[in-house]
């Protein structure tokens, strides 16, 4: 036989020189959206060329909404929580913040969502369950006691009773000496999905949309660091929707909110950058990773087409838990 190779003189062959025959592969099952993932991810050159000509921080934000993304600042760790009284919830929040949580995500109880006081006999069985009960400025001040609102990003899941709750939040901050323009965070303010799946609306659709656009107008003028809506697909998935339905309805809702804002006389460039989105994460890992990026691209495309916006919305990757899928991009099959 020939002499054993002298590897000190052999370079590593290129990957192109080491080809493998794939052979016959079994088909992969279609998922809930009737999308069949490829057995072997073969890059689609047109998609890759498109993606290669985009960068993080540039529309359509396929590769992330911020130029340096997590290289300079990781996602916000924000655990959705709230229960019992404002004092109990405040104590829980402060323990979590001491343990490394980086922002707050407030869950309100159903009476607060529907605009009832805690002493209303109609809601007696729901007070302090599934969220914290907030009836007054005293409650809201207690909720954020010893939590500096000028340095804390606060997300609030509130839709139907958004006016009083946002007002109380602003006043609680003022009582801490914090101006509205210093407040950072998000209020969900997505009433359309309440009519579809979540049900904590108070007023009919038209006046509800008026409230939404009034909040847009106020926040755009007074709260430049605050995301005044979180267009939510999450609840649709929880109510049974597949990922394509979730994306489609969320994007349609987002468009409706933009129309409402424009109809109220707002300049789309004044408020579109403050729209945020909230998606559900499935544990089909590879599929979920591109849902967010795909959503960004479609939304921004629609946005730009319809309203000639110069800027666009951000994807709020800050909801509950860090999602490792959000950090994987550009893969061939997803």
């Amino acid at each position: 036989m020939s002499a054993f190779p002298d590897f000190t003189k052999i370079d590593l062959p290129s990957s192109k020189a080491l080809a493998a025959r794939v052979g016959d592969l079994p088909p992969t099952p279609a998922n809930a959206e009737q999308i069949v993932m490829p057995s072997l991810a073969m890059c689609d050159p047109s998609q890759q060329v498109f993606a290669a000509n985009t960068q993080p921080g540039f529309a359509p934000f396929l590769r992330g909404p911020y130029p340096s993304m997590y290289a300079t600042r990781p996602w916000t760790i924000r655990q959705y929580a709230g229960f019992s009284t404002a004092a109990e919830s405040n104590s829980f929040y402060r323990r979590n913040l001491a343990a490394g949580q980086m922002g707050l995500s407030v869950a309100f109880d159903l009476p607060t969502h529907r605009g009832y006081d805690s002493d209303n006999p109609l809601v007696a069985d729901d007070v302090g369950l599934a969220g914290v009960a907030i009836d007054s400025i005293a409650d809201m001040a207690m909720l954020f006691d010893q939590i500096p609102l000028d340095r804390m990003s606060v997300s609030m899941t509130m839709n139907g009773a958004v006016l009083p709750v946002l007002a109380l939040f602003i006043v609680a901050a003022e009582e801490q000496g914090v101006r509205p323009d210093q407040l950072a965070g998000t209020i969900q303010n997505d009433v359309l999905k309440e009519f579809m799946v979540r049900n904590t609306y108070i007023y009919p659709p038209v006046p509800s949309m008026r409230i939404v656009s009034d909040i847009f107008a106020y926040c755009a003028a007074e709260m430049p660091k605050f995301n005044f809506i979180s267009v939510s697909g999450y609840h649709m998935q929880e109510a049974g929707a597949s990922a394509d339905l979730e994306l489609a309805y969320t994007l349609a809702d987002g468009l409706a909110y933009i129309r409402a804002g424009v109809a109220a006389g707002l300049d789309v460039d004044d408020f579109a950058p403050r729209l945020s989105f909230f998606f559900w994460r499935q544990h089909e890992f590879l599929y979920g990773s591109r849902k967010v990026a795909g959503g960004a691209a479609v939304m921004v495309g629609t946005d730009a087409t319809a309203f000639c916006a110069e800027k666009s919305e951000i994807i709020d990757a800050a909801h509950p838990l860090p999602d490792i899928r959000l950090v994987i991009g550009g893969a061939g099959c997803v």
Binding site: N31, S39, A41, E284, L286, Y287, I328, G329, A331, V334
Partner: peptide, 16 residues
């Protein structure tokens, strides 16, 4: 549940 064996080399093509 996560479906990680259904596609071969799903990270192939990702720049990093």
């Amino acid at each position: 549940e996560s479906g990680l064996s259904r596609s071969l080399d799903p990270a192939g093509g990702a720049g990093f």
